[in-house]
């Protein structure tokens, strides 16, 4: 008898930026939404983040970035994801992102960008839907 699959998320702070309160709040909210969250912490390189996602068989990578280097660093993540066959892994980015960069990030392969002030419930709902779509995993109730 196999068990109900839970959504696994790797949450990471990408690059040189020491502000992790937002990432912790998100990780906690996803835990409260019934997901299994691997929080990898501050100053992670794209290599470290993608390697963690590979070994954990994560359904989702959540990146928090407030340094302004997102257009520089996110392409490294998407490139490494492709190289490591993570094409079906959901990639979400949050942090201080100028609105005009959102479409650029999406064109790079980011599934969604969450701005400051985003609703936590909305984020977890988006993730559940996106995982169902990309990984063919059924949406579970957080009960």
């Amino acid at each position: 008898m196999s068990l109900e699959k839970r959504i696994k998320v790797v949450v990471a702070k990408l690059g040189l930026d020491g502000h992790d309160r937002g990432a912790k709040v998100i990780a906690r909210a996803l835990k409260d939404a019934g997901m299994e969250v691997v929080y990898t912490g501050l100053r992670q390189t794209p290599e470290q983040i993608v390697k963690a996602a590979v070994q954990e068989d994560a359904d989702v990578i959540g990146i928090s970035i407030l340094s302004g280097a997102h257009l520089e660093l996110i392409p490294h993540i998407t490139k490494l994801m492709k190289e490591n066959q993570l094409n079906d892994v959901v990639l979400v980015v949050g942090g201080v992102i100028p609105p005009q960069d959102i479409q650029t990030l999406k064109d790079m392969g980011v599934d969604q960008v969450f701005m400051p002030g985003s609703n936590l419930k909305e984020i977890s709902e988006f993730i559940k839907q996106a995982v169902a779509k990309k990984r063919g995993q059924k949406v579970e109730r957080a009960s």
């Binding site: 839970r6 835990k31 409260d32 019934g34 997901m35 299994e36 969250v37 691997v38 929080y39 963690a52």
Partner: peptide, 12 residues
């Protein structure tokens, strides 16, 4: 979590 079955794993 005994309530939501979620988990916050910080070992990594």
């Amino acid at each position: 979590s005994p309530f939501t079955k979620g988990s916050f794993m910080g070992n990594r």
